[in-house]
Design a protein around this nucleic acid. Structure first.
Lengths: 210, 210
DNA sequence: TTTTTCAAGTAACAAATGTTACATACTTAC
DNA sequence: GTAAGTATGTAACATTTGTTACTTGAAAAA
């Protein structure tokens, strides 16, 4: 368990804190598609990602989704911090994009360490900063890009966190993530194919020149 | 100077911290339209709002704006905290929506107080939480609402922070805030008027049943 | 008063996105 | 094998949003 911790967090945290994390945190492996946190959940622990990736989603009144961003190893979910601090409900849904290994830290420790370890405090504040920036990037994408650009960006981001330029997915799933319809996605994917940016297959999409 | 501080922050901070704030912070009055912070600026102090309101904006590659949210008295700009902590550039533009009174806190103190005062640490984290929530609400608005709904929400929000149901503004200004065109705004305003939600005049808009 | 400037109204059209309906082809279950 | 289910392709059309161009009317300047 401690090896993934070493690899991703050793340069961030002092040894004593790393030791505490490995003693107190609970190691967890979750499969692709696993819902780590849902909208309205009360959060009692925060995840440190050892490997894999997490998809952060927002939901509209009708229950339809919209992807905000992906979070990768070495990161945590800043919305969790927010929720833990304020003891409020989650505003987002976090879904494992790939098989993912995490360490869960209970919120009491999280708060305790804020005072005890300067590196932990920096990490928490830094995480907030990162997530704020990602949220702003999500705003840019949604507000300023047209759907074909959003789609291409989504495919590239997804390929990136999956470390694979061949995406196993369907047009329907993509449409759900982008909060649009399957027909629109098919149409724009076809366009991207004629532009030689992707290659379409059944149940998969290959990204050219990732 | 200390009176606005008392009114908005006395219940949040211990007396000693309030005293430090009033000694160290610099009082500032800025007029409507004043740019408190621009994209790319290096931030050396953070503002505590005593009265008034601030409009937080994002910019696209072409230099066109988009409003994210309004910040009111009793709040601070969480993006500032972010920037101060990380010593990075501002990601947003902050413009005084009304005449606004603020206290500026230099970043050294800001960090020092994080360790010294528990109430300050809570305030900072709480501010992050609030701003994160507002950003998510902005995402909802941009991603899930149609332009007429966004427009109506904008008008109501603007009336709220101005504490006036008669808005002094032009269609052009609204279009810039919503990242659309004047013609679109005029069209939808007309529609809102026929729905008896607003009343249009030259250079002003009256909100019915605010 | 006359002229100029600015805000707003509106028509006509273009582009982007969303919707419905159906065809086709691949995969899986039987 | 055949049948059923699923993914994709595509046409036709509706709606929303963006753009251009021009008009009207109010306010400000001359």
């Amino acid at each position: 368990m401690i090896e993934g911790l070493q690899r991703n967090y050793a340069y961030l945290f002092e040894d004593e804190l790393l030791k505490e994390i490995s003693e107190i945190g609970t190691y967890k492996e979750v499969p692709e598609g696993f819902i780590l946190m849902d909208i309205g959940d009360y959060i009692k622990s925060m995840p440190l990602i050892l490997s894999g990736a997490i998809k952060v989603m927002r939901e509209d009144e009708k229950g339809d989704d919209l992807i905000l961003y992906f979070v990768e190893q070495g990161d945590t979910c800043a919305m969790t911090i927010t929720c833990c601090m304020g003891e409020t409900k989650s505003e987002i849904r976090a879904v494992a994009e790939t098989n993912t290994r995490i360490i869960m830290i209970p919120i009491q420790k999280m708060q305790e360490w804020m005072h005890k370890y300067k590196s932990w405090q920096s990490f928490i504040l830094q995480s907030y900063h990162e997530r704020m920036k990602e949220l702003l990037e999500a705003v840019d994408t949604i507000a300023f890009l047209k759907m074909d650009e959003r789609l291409y960006k989504y495919l590239r981001d997804k390929a990136m966190v999956n470390r694979d330029d061949l995406l196993k997915t369907t047009h329907q799933e993509i449409a759900q993530d982008l909060h649009t319809s399957r027909v629109v996605v098919s149409r724009l994917l076809k366009k991207l194919e004629t532009e030689n940016k992707i290659k379409l297959h059944r149940n998969s999409i290959k990204i050219i020149n990732l």
